[in-house]
Amino acid sequence: MILHELARRMDLERLVDSQDATHEIETGYVGDLLSHVLASAKSNSLWITIQRHENVVAVAQVAGLGCIVFAEGMRPEAPVIERARNAGIALYVSPASAFELAGRLHKLLHTEAP
């Protein structure tokens, strides 16, 4: 599903837009330990995390994750947003928990996809 469509239907607040209007999300990944995300996340996942350290952007780049969603209102600081903008990583935030966000994503990708 296209990221913009997903974000709208998951009710996410956008912090940094994707540079690709047709940015496609294939699956999701939930994780806060950056080393584990690096080792395990599949590319083109929507990454849901409460980790706000600046390294999230580098990890997303290397793991091929084009979009990070910060759960539980974990709003990243300005340098993280700036870095994501430069790296072309989309950022969203939501007050919902990672459990709730993963549930919404799973429903959209697996029960409503054509």
């Binding site: 080393s35 690096l38 390294n55 952007v57 290397v62």
Partner: peptide, 11 residues
């Protein structure tokens, strides 16, 4: 330490 290569542009 995992066999993950450094990507200088990212890290």
């Amino acid at each position: 330490l995992p066999d993950v290569p450094n990507v200088p542009d990212a890290f």
